[in-house]
Simulated scan of single mutants.
Amino acid sequence: MMALTPVLPDAKAGYLRSGLQQVRGWLDASTAVYLSGIEVAQRTEDIVGDVAEIGIHHGKSFLCLSLGLPADQRAVAIDVFDDQSANVDNSGRGNRPTFERNLAAYGAGDNIDILQSSSLDLEQAGFVTAGRRFRIFSIDGGHTKEITENDLWIAERTVVERGLVVLDDVLNRHWLGVISGLFGYLADGGSLVPAVLVPNKLILATSVDQAKQYRDLFAATFPTALEKADVPLAGHLVDVYAQAHWLVRGENDETGPITGHEPMATITAARLTELEGQLRTARSDLKAVQQQLRAANLPLYRKAARRMPWLARPVRPIFRRVRKVMGRPR
């Protein structure tokens, strides 16, 4: 599916087009578009606040949120970085020097705050008592049930009324602590409400009414990417958004695909002919390999009988015995 992004600040658009695939990490390209686009869409709705992320790695998703941010808003990056003893489940390995190089390489501003800490220590450090201030809070840190619950409570207490929380790996079968933590948080009375599911991330709002407004905002911002609406999840309804091939639009009117994604609409006739030729060659190679495998499947003793009968003769009784035991016909 081909889709157009909303118009994005040039720094964001440039990062998506040419930088996203260069930064190491785990982030679906479509989800990068959704994070970037909804950050901008919040501004059009006059939703004011900073952005934050727990779990940075090299900054792949943090850059989607922080690039092009208004100068009077802060972007807070939280990670244990070098203190890997606090990375209890090995769910990532933040590298601060690499992260800072990526910030500089892709044009992040001076409004970045880096906090080296386990999220389990944030409340004791006074992070929560600073008050509600985030319009987007991304959770991608430890993936255990305990840490996920902790991070959701931290986000609930620091996100502004019209803000949103993004929970990573909620349906990832390798990290079932995340969905266990989500259900534990909701069962304990957590007020965040599931609203939108994008590839590998769940977006939660601060109330049922706000969840409905975010579903409407996503529909207006990404009108061609809705895959399924009104899907029940944990007692709420969420809208599911698809993976797509995106043409990224910047404020300077430049439009182009995300590096590594080759939309069909941009493939020339010559390129299509080249791909068809590669497919024919691959099929021919496969056929040759199949013939070799069939030839190799000829029993070894038959080859020996033909090529070296004086060596094959003594082992024939053994093969006959093996075939008899296995119930195979002589």
Score class of each variant (00 low, 15 high):
19 G>V: 02
18 S>G: 02
301 Y>W: 09
232 P>I: 08
5 T>L: 03
5 T>W: 13
204 L>N: 04
99 F>S: 03
207 S>R: 07
135 R>Q: 12
40 V>C: 10
214 Y>S: 02
80 V>M: 06
44 T>C: 10
248 V>I: 13
266 T>H: 03
316 R>Q: 14
140 D>C: 11
125 A>T: 02
275 L>N: 01
330 R>A: 15
46 D>A: 15
251 E>A: 06
58 H>I: 00
231 V>W: 08
195 A>K: 04
213 Q>G: 03
218 F>S: 07
82 D>P: 06
218 F>H: 08
27 L>W: 10
202 L>Y: 09
327 G>Q: 06
176 L>C: 05
40 V>P: 12
224 T>L: 03
262 E>S: 12
172 N>M: 01
272 L>Y: 05
63 L>G: 05
207 S>V: 05
185 Y>Q: 01
235 G>H: 11
289 V>C: 01
77 A>N: 12
146 E>M: 13
252 N>M: 03
148 T>Q: 05
198 V>C: 14
243 Q>F: 00
41 A>I: 08
127 F>V: 06
134 F>G: 08
230 D>P: 05
265 A>D: 14
215 R>I: 03
79 D>A: 02
94 G>M: 03
330 R>S: 15
87 N>H: 12
228 K>M: 12
109 G>W: 11
92 G>A: 05
35 L>N: 12
79 D>V: 08
218 F>A: 06
24 R>I: 04
71 A>R: 07
58 H>R: 12
175 W>F: 15
203 I>E: 06
223 P>H: 08
193 V>P: 04
20 L>N: 07
306 R>L: 07
90 N>F: 13
18 S>P: 04
320 R>M: 07
227 E>Q: 11
79 D>W: 02
258 I>E: 10
297 N>Y: 02
147 I>R: 11
86 A>P: 03
306 R>H: 08
213 Q>T: 09
116 Q>G: 07
249 R>I: 04
123 E>W: 11
190 G>I: 01
88 V>M: 10
278 Q>H: 10
21 Q>I: 00
203 I>S: 03
149 E>V: 11
72 D>S: 13
47 I>G: 09
40 V>G: 08
106 Y>C: 00
65 L>M: 13
306 R>G: 09
225 A>C: 13
254 E>N: 07
281 T>L: 07
124 Q>I: 04
70 P>F: 13
311 L>M: 09
